[in-house]
Design a protein around this nucleic acid. Structure first.
Lengths: 194, 194
DNA sequence: CACTCCTTTCAGTAATTCCTGAAAGTTCAG
DNA sequence: CTGAACTTTCAGGAATTACTGAAAGGAGTG
């Protein structure tokens, strides 16, 4: 590995974290390397930089493409495939969220939906069913929120994040405003009475 | 496994998904079983229900405890340890989020912080540094949001979720209101001039 | 302190996942 | 068509992770 110490540390860290993130070491390392590379890299450059086999690089790049974490590029007059990580970190974040949802949440949601179709017969089953329903409700609520939020452009998303829980204060304010409007309406109606 | 078909399907699904969620099959199955059980179970009941070794159950319960996904209970006059999943699904969700953050995000954030301390020397390093800074910025923004939001009680959290991206409309409204107030202030100031 | 009943640890094995080198596949130039 | 320059596939070995049974560790009881 002929990398600057910083890049090397970053690459190794991603390799180690890989297992916690549900990808393997090589995939993590390759992604990290591409992420900090100023220009697209071809497979052999990755082999060279990370000291792993050509076939491993090929398979790992394939996986990264499946995750939409890496983009295939071509350089005119060069037959080789070159790869980069998308530039926009927010876009990367979206892709990651989308893929994780697809792999980690959607299958469970679908199983829960199916299991909720069968009518419980025993007391035990009735209990289980309620719990499945609770889990289903929660997941659905969270994924609905996500499906809604993911369409926001980056700027709005950032605003939303930076606001954090302050949003609820805002909600309280509007609630109070609504109440006020309602009570005003009530008073006016009363005044209209003969 | 002497479980009702629904429970069995649920348990097996959690077992299969386990690997995608960064836990192993047994841990997933045990959690699923406890989640739908109307009463706390002891280790031997789990052995019996899932057909796995006693020691495996012991180790897996230990891991579930580390994740705060399972609660140790005692029944008066009984020396055995009993376990349940917390009842409140929202609390479960919080625990899960907290633990995942701790394991999957915090270490990276800390590495990024360290790497951002070293001054870049070459052009290449400068580029890498900017990218690390971008990633660091994003993660920090998201985790700050999370740290803020996680303190909300369940009711407010649910409101927030159900509102989804509508929040931004609300923001637009308040922005306009602010503008209006500012312009009103301006007009008043102008009127105050001699 | 010895017995019972339960939990945990741990070394070894089973299962799974990852990685490699060899071979086959693809694409294009001549 | 042939060969060069790449990429991909895949069988099998390497590494890692999961699981088991046996043994050891408590903790309460007579």
């Amino acid at each position: 590995m002929n990398l600057t110490p910083t890049v090397q540390a970053f690459v190794l860290h991603f390799g180690e974290m890989g297992s916690r993130w549900g990808i393997n070491r090589t995939v993590g390392q390759i992604y990290a390397l591409l992420y900090v590379s100023p220009k697209p890299l071809c497979a052999d450059e990755i082999v060279e930089a990370l000291g792993i086999s050509r076939s491993n690089v090929s398979m790992s790049l394939r996986e990264l493409q499946a995750w939409n974490l890496v983009i295939l590029r071509h350089i005119p007059g060069d037959r080789r495939d070159f790869f980069t990580a998308p530039e926009d970190v927010w876009q990367i974040f979206r892709n990651l969220a989308e893929e994780r949802k697809k792999r980690e949440v959607d299958p469970t949601l679908s199983v829960l939906r199916d299991l909720l179709m069968v009518e419980p017969r025993t007391e035990e089953e009735r209990f289980a069913r309620t719990r499945l329903a609770e889990m289903h409700g929660l997941i659905e609520q969270v994924t609905n929120w996500y499906d809604d939020i993911k369409r926001l452009d980056t700027e709005r998303l950032a605003t939303l994040l930076s606001l954090g829980s302050k949003v609820t204060r805002l909600l309280d304010v509007t609630d109070k405003a609504k109440e006020k409007i309602v009570s005003m309406g009530r008073r006016r109606k009363e005044a209209d009475k003969p």
